[in-house]
Amino acid sequence: MLALARHTVLQKLSLSAAPAGSIAVRSITARVPTHEDDTHDDFKPKFNTDAEPRSAPSVAEQIQNDVQQHPVFLYMKGVPEAPQCGFSNMACRILDAYGASYGTRNVLADVDIREGIKEFTKWPTIPQIFINGEFVGGSDILMGMHQSGELQPLLDEAVTTKSAQ
């Protein structure tokens, strides 16, 4: 029992004996890494701000791929399970009501896509809905087409196109 107690005391002593100052200095230098400090590419900090901005064509290509590979595709804020904007939510719920399966991309997670999609469609707002690779509009248009009955045939066509492929 005595031996155990002494052991604990020794441990405490050895901890307090550690040069606290050197630890603090190390943590400060660790917080401000510079490129020169690193000797290998693998250890260099990789900040998004350092990355070359993606060129416009590659964003456009990605959008082309998205909308051509999915009969119904939605650029939105958040994800269908948790939209981060009322308009994006409305678009998801309308598509859900038709039981449509659709691909989505969260523009909040990708600033290049967020700006790129507006440029691509010359449409200033999110969400943006594509059916059969064609830009249909935003959430107000989707709601309008739902109310006028135009949406069902368009989605039917999208499903038929997909199953024919």
């Binding site: 249909v136 509009g137 107000d140 248009i141 309008g144 087409m145």
Partner: peptide
């Protein structure tokens, strides 16, 4: 079309 009308407003 509806899309074009929205574009005109935008």
């Amino acid at each position: 079309r509806l899309l074009d009308r929205h574009r005109m407003i935008n």
